[in-house]
Design a protein around this nucleic acid. Sequence first.
DNA 1: ACAAAAGTGTTGTACTTACACCCATGA
DNA 2: TCATGGGTGTAAGTACAACACTTTTGT
Lengths: 244, 244
Amino acid sequence: MKQASGVESYRPSDYPPFAVTVDIVVFTIRDDRLQIVLIQRSAPPFERAWALPGGFVQSRENLETAARRELQEETGVQAGPSHLAQFQTYGDPDRDPRMRVVSVAWWAIIPNLIQPVAGSDAAFADLIGVDEVISGRVPLAFDHRQIVIDGLEALRTELENSTLASTFWDGEFRIRDLRRVYEVVWGVDLEPGNFQRKVRKIPGWLRATGRRAPGSGGGRPAEFFLSEAREAQRLNSPLRREQP
Amino acid sequence: MKQASGVESYRPSDYPPFAVTVDIVVFTIRDDRLQIVLIQRSAPPFERAWALPGGFVQSRENLETAARRELQEETGVQAGPSHLAQFQTYGDPDRDPRMRVVSVAWWAIIPNLIQPVAGSDAAFADLIGVDEVISGRVPLAFDHRQIVIDGLEALRTELENSTLASTFWDGEFRIRDLRRVYEVVWGVDLEPGNFQRKVRKIPGWLRATGRRAPGSGGGRPAEFFLSEAREAQRLNSPLRREQP
DNA sequence: ACAAAAGTGTTGTACTTACACCCATGA
DNA sequence: TCATGGGTGTAAGTACAACACTTTTGT
């Protein structure tokens, strides 16, 4: 009978060596579309295919540090992401043809103003629409398409229950911009008036600055807001997306 | 400059070896309390301390298989758990004093009828109240207390949004039993009448059997119900727990 | 008859939705 | 003046909490 592993004994056969990596799904909104950062591989396997930024966890590094380091190294983002959260770990025996790799997946948001691929030594990084990836029109290496699907679901759920949507913008934004986040991430149309009332009623989130946007092309200029929520604050009455 | 790991090269220094384990927080309700399965360690480190069931992932095994295998080996549960879900991965460099271990944590529910520790070769397995663990009155090995805290939070959230609560019972149960699950897991008191209306209105969950409980000690006997939800079905209008 | 638990009725409050309407600006 | 988008009013519908009340059993 096998004993409880790691309790009585730990012979080498009990713990085959694994490589551990982190992979990060970095979301941003550009051109009114939800996009993610992808890197074009320059070596086999999956040479020239797109892949998520990520890499090996080092010997004395914890998982979050590894994710932040890889994000910085591969996307050239100087400031950190406005949010970084672990969502799932992938470890099928054949997910990497070279060796046994377990990958801890994270999702992140970088605000609109940050240019993710400027000044990086990862010359082949780019923003790709998440729809292109999920539909399969842009094939990804390894099981990264599944990771994107799961990461998107985590992001969608988080938007329902927290004030995280405002971190897609750095500094001032209009209610319209916030609504655009929900519409783009959830893939729905929201009623502008009701949305405005709903989010402005949430305590501790939005603070009006008094300043107004210079209207571009007619229409009453919108007021600018700032987020008062430092971390992603949990909503006691969530914004529900309907599930058809 | 460091290149994107795992893309251009993979020299041994790029991927230090890790041991990968699974740890499982197995919830059940016994004596109107939420309890988890713990194992008493018989070897250092943390000899004689309580720990979560779990162990090393084998070379050609995927993560979920490893979790199910360890659960069966260490708790002696013949039938599988009624639910098993991954929730977080722990990988601090010093979480295991012997070596670098990354642990993928899962939570599970076993129904009331299953005797978890009978007939197992893990002679030191037992059920412990989750309150004892979180309060620290029963200290756990490694970072297992934190894993229990996070696993409990995952369970609480899942009960809000899915029909999973009924899997704490195997076969027939009363509305009262279902309410007890919520009260015990959330640590709140729920109003019986409103709870009954709410859950019976949820489509595709509860089916009345027409049979009634033999009243134990007076009172109108309760009707028995069966769950029609095979998997954990998402609720379109969740049961909210209030957050104080 | 009385206590106890199951289940239903009722009522006030809060939130949501749909849509009308006014406001403030550019052209 | 008109078009456009920002923001508010309003009324119907829905959901929920609190609690009274009826039903059905054991003692």
